[in-house]
């Protein structure tokens, strides 16, 4: 599904990713763990195609295609979804209008027919119910005045609505209390599927108690320095990043 080879990327001319290699197969959930400043968020933005995050070397192949050649919206239409750490507030655009516009833009790019307003509402309601997103939230401006938990829930609602093939979750646990965390994790787990891959990016092991990964990768200074099964996350929690990074060196 996703093959990243020797990836180098810069932000504002500064190299952040320094030869990152990673492979994620369909149906798998991989966790990327790393200390602050290791390049976790840079990786997620590079995968989503944010301007200013420049790939200077290596390759990202997604479903056999060069991902770096695609615009952010093309990536989304092809099934790449990034649940953001800090979802943006957009006054003047209601949440439901946004969801409808995005869903139909993706469908149009794939040559599929638009879903009409009633159809979108039905789809959104169904997903919203499972994630405990009240209807009233959908009528408000996108993310404006939403609590941290509400914003994250809406990210997962989008994931459920768009049904991406590759979901990247960037620090989805940050700012969540334990109840919200469980709810979000349930939402994510419900989307685990044989034809879907997930990349869960997190600083803390906590989230991985609820979203259990198939593989864990440790990111430090722009490279993957250690890899293992889900037990690696527990080891990290017990020993701290410093020890693991030192052992790997």
């Amino acid at each position: 599904m996703l093959e990243i080879k020797n990836l180098h990327a810069t932000v504002d001319g500064k190299e952040i990713l320094k030869g990152l290699t990673l492979s994620v197969g369909a149906g798998e959930v991989h966790a990327i763990m790393g200390p602050n400043g290791s390049g976790k968020s840079t990786l997620s933005y590079v995968l989503a195609g944010r301007a200013g995050y420049e790939v200077t070397g290596g390759s990202i192949i997604y479903k056999g295609e060069d991902l770096t050649a695609m615009s952010p919206d093309q990536r989304a239409a092809k099934g790449v979804f990034l649940a953001m750490q800090y979802p943006v507030e957009i006054p003047g655009v209601t949440t439901l209008t946004f969801l409808k516009t995005a869903l139909n833009a993706q469908r149009r790019a794939r040559g599929e027919k638009d879903v009409d307003a009633v159809g979108v509402l039905r789809l959104v309601r169904e997903k919203a119910k499972a994630l405990n997103v009240p209807e009233e939230m959908l009528k408000r401006a996108l993310n404006v005045g939403f609590s941290g938990g509400e914003k994250k829930r809406l990210e997962i609602l989008q994931m459920a609505l768009f049904q991406p093939a590759l979901a990247i979750l960037d620090e989805t646990d940050s700012g969540l209390d334990i109840d919200a965390l469980k709810l979000v994790a349930e939402g994510v787990n419900a989307l685990r599927a044989p034809d879907r891959a997930m990349l869960v990016i997190t600083h803390y092991q906590r989230l991985l108690n609820y979203i259990v990964p198939d593989r864990v990768h440790v990111l430090a200074k722009g490279r993957i320095v250690a890899e293992g099964g889900k037990e690696l996350a527990l080891k990290l929690e017990a020993q701290g990043y410093e020890q693991i990074i030192k052992d790997a060196a």
């Binding site: 615009s71 919206d73 989304a76 979802p87 943006v88 957009i90 833009a105 989008q158």
Partner: peptide, 18 residues
């Protein structure tokens, strides 16, 4: 706002539409 623009585009909305 560049951040808003990126958010919308990352959801599949083409640049001009965003």
């Amino acid at each position: 706002d560049a951040e808003s623009l990126f958010y919308l585009r990352s959801r599949g909305i083409p640049e001009n539409e965003a």
